[in-house]
Design a protein around this nucleic acid. Structure first.
Lengths: 224, 224
DNA sequence: AATGAACCTAAACCAACGTATGATCATGCC
DNA sequence: GGCATGATCATACGTTGGTTTAGGTTCATT
């Protein structure tokens, strides 16, 4: 097969199709074999010969996972894992290697890899790992989107409203918040009503949970 | 930060001394060498020649970690890891092996092992792993104790109070709770006041956070 | 100059919350 | 029987929460 670069799949709707398996391996035959394997179960695939090539694409938005050879031209797969993390690309990684050792695999797993397969591996093991990785990425993305929504709601609050929110979710009464911020109680009530509406919180319990997810308004550990 | 608590493992007051390293290896010379190593930095050590021997002691209460050879008489170290988990013994495990392979190490790490060291390893690596494991166990125990306190508080509530708590932390008003439980509003107020006192919650925000930690009173995912 | 956004406040009002006080009833235990 | 506990309800009172209406300021943008 002369195809060396990205083999964009037939499906044109690359936006919201499904999870994609990014295969990064310098051995073209391995790439192609893996590509065929994943396509055989209906997964979209993109193939890359190096880390740089992979970065040239714009991953990170697309859901899926990375199948990564430890030995790459240029950087090592382990270092690449670190780079990706630093770049904010948190796609689950499945490592594979022909000449790996235990410390290598342990380092990869400690750094969050989903799996680490020594060549030769059974195809089923790879498929299982990819399935787990995609499942994991899906969960991560759902969680991320949930708190992203929360954050945008929080960002839509005025500074004052944000202050009031943190005080409210800390369990302070309107009177106390007013004193803390140098306001009258009625003003606090106004802000409070506004922020409840903007945050889409239908009860104080709602708001506290949202604040918990956002990491705001929990000043001290609860007593006892 | 080595807490230089005396290695008086002789004393029967094993209650609140410090973290203990449980070494499980069938090779007596390895056991002794590890024992000496850990004692040299002020850690308490207990040595075992087999998994059974280890279980004969009463671990699980004592904070610390396990240093475990993969090859053991009887069960394999990996299987033993599973057994311990099933037994509710969640001490962090550091594996070591002279004849391990990558799948073995990956399985161990996936099952939650702190580290997996191939012999021969550097002493410093083992010490680092043990330090990390003890730190991890400390965190786990602190978290566990916190929610254990919460649970005992929750258990001290009467059935009715528990019901009311879940409804309150779901964001319902007293009136709605009363309707849901077939009570009058005043009765709900009574229960509510009592449970706030018993739970040691000084505000509704407090209570919601406690309920969150307990996993009660979060009926539906928040809208939007 | 005008507009709008964010901020602040007040008066008035109603709903919700919380805590007494006092009482009834059933259960289980000594 | 006597006792404690849990559960229930009522009346009453005071506090807290929340909205509406009706103002006011400052500041940046238009």
């Amino acid at each position: 097969m002369g195809m060396t670069l990205t083999s964009r799949d037939t499906s044109p709707a690359a936006s919201q199709s499904g999870p994609v398996v990014f295969v990064v391996d310098d051995d073209a035959s391995v790439r192609e074999a893996l590509g065929a394997l994943f396509r055989s179960i209906g997964l979209a695939v993109r193939l890359f010969g190096s880390a740089l090539e992979f970065l040239q694409g714009k991953p990170g938005e697309t859901p899926g996972c990375i199948v990564l050879d430890v030995r790459l031209p240029g950087v090592s797969g382990l270092d690449f894992q670190t780079q990706l993390s630093a770049l904010g690309i948190h796609l689950p990684i499945i490592f594979m290697t022909g000449h790996g050792d235990i410390p290598m695999s342990v380092r990869a797993m400690k750094a969050g890899a989903i799996d680490f397969l020594a060549k030769p591996f059974r195809e089923q093991d790879m498929l299982d790992a990819v399935a787990a990785a995609i499942e994991c990425d899906g969960r991560r993305r759902r969680d991320l989107e949930a708190i992203s929504n929360l954050r945008s709601h929080f960002a839509s609050l005025t500074p004052r409203e944000q202050e009031v929110l943190t005080h409210v979710t800390s369990g302070l009464m309107n009177k106390q918040i007013a004193a803390a911020l140098g306001l009258s109680e009625i003003t606090v009530k106004i802000h409070r009503g506004n922020l409840m509406r903007k945050m889409g919180a239908r009860s104080l319990a709602d708001l506290v949970r949202q604040a918990e997810a956002l990491g705001v308004g929990t000043p001290l550990e609860m007593a006892r």
